[in-house]
Design a protein around this nucleic acid. Structure first.
Lengths: 198, 198, 198, 198
DNA sequence: CATGAATGAGACTTCATTCAT
DNA sequence: GATGAATGAAGTCTCATTCAT
């Protein structure tokens, strides 16, 4: 076998393992994923994984890294310098939605949260979130009827608001952001109400 | 000891364990948390936890449930029916930020994602996110200079956009949302640019 | 309270614990029995058992010892020296069957071959059995000398009798056999004396 | 390694574990037996046992089941239909004594009335005993019809025979009795057939 | 003396990783 | 190189026993 072909084989088997790992990590999360299941999914022996990856953690890091790279590449906004910001943002949203729709397993690895989640807890969690969404939607529709806000898709607004909330805890908790709450709350609300159009 | 006092003690010890558990689950995540560490943190013996909670999962469920309840109660928007939507949204943002600032450990339990996160991976993850933010900020500032958008806090806009993105994968992947990508992307962009004011 | 009364109380509580222990050991066996269940059954606190018994093993040893004493006393063949061997054997069978029928819990403790058997207990158990065999052998040899029975290996007869006794508790206690004690004792004795030859 | 050899190895290791388990269960009983001790006895690692058996209980069940099968097969009286009842009974005693003498550890596992006995095992155990009794009763009744033995209660005879068998293992295994199997079997049969009457 | 909350040694079991074949 | 049987560290949980009240 030529050295070229050998390397291709080597690369191909790595790829095989990574593909299997994406699927398994996606449906089990890191801790519930078993090396044996990944090997089985890849159709190879358990020990073979260790020929290509140092450890479970290493494998996961590569899976996560590649998945995120694929995701970020799919956003592809840097190549579109001629577009307006509006168009760029629209494109980001569009690419994101399409990526998620077309790569559910990759998406799960990239955005996965709370790994344990036995069925009871999952249901409870889901209900709580739905309740929050229902509450928000109700308030939004009332405000729309009252003419306080213009006609928009309430679900889209829900996404914007809950999204900002979800994005807002990490810098505070992990990066020790300690700015002024009043100003930030005001600025966020201002953007949502007045828009950013120049 | 009076029966009254006894019950207080019983309750107090439960509370003691829950407090310790919040701290340990917060800094380790569910799987990396060790029952022994929780006991140590609470200043009690390993077996004592099992006098108050059936299992590790049960304990975590209570910690998560209580943390979320505290969080949702802190938002407290239902009692403020007289306020305008604008004011309500501002209040939600404000409460959220203040809660996160004042209850970092609780926050971590409530919003925690991807539990493994050894230091290397955490750093890598952080860098990737920062890069995304920098990129966005740059684009935003350019658009602001060009007069395409009005003068706003770029970081606030970053939060709105990345937040919406972060909120957008779960319904697609877990709830099998399969609406039209084009319309949703358009509506989201529209909200951000035009605002929602009536 | 008088010293006399105190000692009665002390004795009464020991008795209370032993009674509870017989019931629990009988239905659970040694290893599955929980000290807490014994305390509950006795209507006292868990710690109180340790005021009267050094350990679970000690408690079991006393329960086993007393149960066996009660059993052996119920056989009561030594006081009946005037009887013929045939009548003695019939009486042993009869007493055994009646004891089993009337003391199912005690019976279970006595005959349930528990695996614990620390060295001390094993020795005690062994000695008790040997004593029973010696007694039987003596009686047999006397009867043989007296010409009441023909020349046989006394040990073999001991095996047949103690064997039948050992085989006789399980159907009574576990399968709720409730036939007529007199007839069965008679039939067994008859077989042993007359043989089964046609 | 050839697939044939592999399977032999796999089987051999199972056998290795089962052998070690017989020894350890025999000298410790179920509850006092430690998985680590079994592994040590087998000269393998603790985890290896779990490659071949699901749990400690499963392992014990197989040990007990196999031991009993070996014992029951050793009795082998069903193939000897031409023999008289007297000869059959003598053979049962003989086989039993020889089995106990030659398989002390197996014997201990078979006759040591362990308290574990989960429901499945209990049912299995009960069924096996009932089967033994049925077989004996059948043989007895046939012999009675044929006039080989006189009219007696077959159940009583069953008790005498199984009782003697049950009484016969302990002196052999624990007290290292090493008398002549032929004579003892003969003497027991003689007592049962001829009776002891002078 | 009586209690039961607290304890921690020690059991079973899992599973990432190794290594002889 | 590929394999999977073997490993043992490490985790959760139990329960006899202790001891402050």
């Amino acid at each position: 076998m030529s050295r070229m072909r050998e390397m291709d084989d080597k690369k191909a088997k790595r790829e095989l393992i990574l593909d299997a790992a994406v699927r398994v990590f996606s449906r089990r999360g890191y801790h519930e994923a078993r090396m044996e299941e990944i090997a089985l999914e890849a159709g190879i022996g358990k020990g073979t994984i260790y020929e290509y990856f140092d450890s479970k953690l290493t494998l996961f890091q590569e899976v996560l890294g590649r998945s995120r790279d694929i995701y970020y590449n799919s956003l592809a906004i840097e190549n579109e310098n001629s577009l307006s910001l509006r168009e760029k943002i629209r494109l980001v949203f569009l690419s994101h939605i399409r990526f998620c729709q077309e790569n559910k397993e990759l998406t799960r690895v990239v955005f996965w949260d709370t790994e344990i989640m036995d069925e009871e807890l999952k249901a409870w969690s889901y209900e709580k979130r739905k309740e929050k969404e229902r509450m928000l939607s109700e308030v939004i529709e009332k405000a729309m009827e009252a003419g306080e806000i213009r006609g928009i898709n309430p679900y889209a607004l829900t996404l914007v608001i809950t999204g900002a909330l979800g994005a807002l805890w990490l810098p505070i908790v992990l990066e020790e952001w300690s700015g002024d709450a009043e100003s930030l709350a005001g600025e966020l609300t201002d953007i949502i109400f007045e828009g950013i159009k120049g």
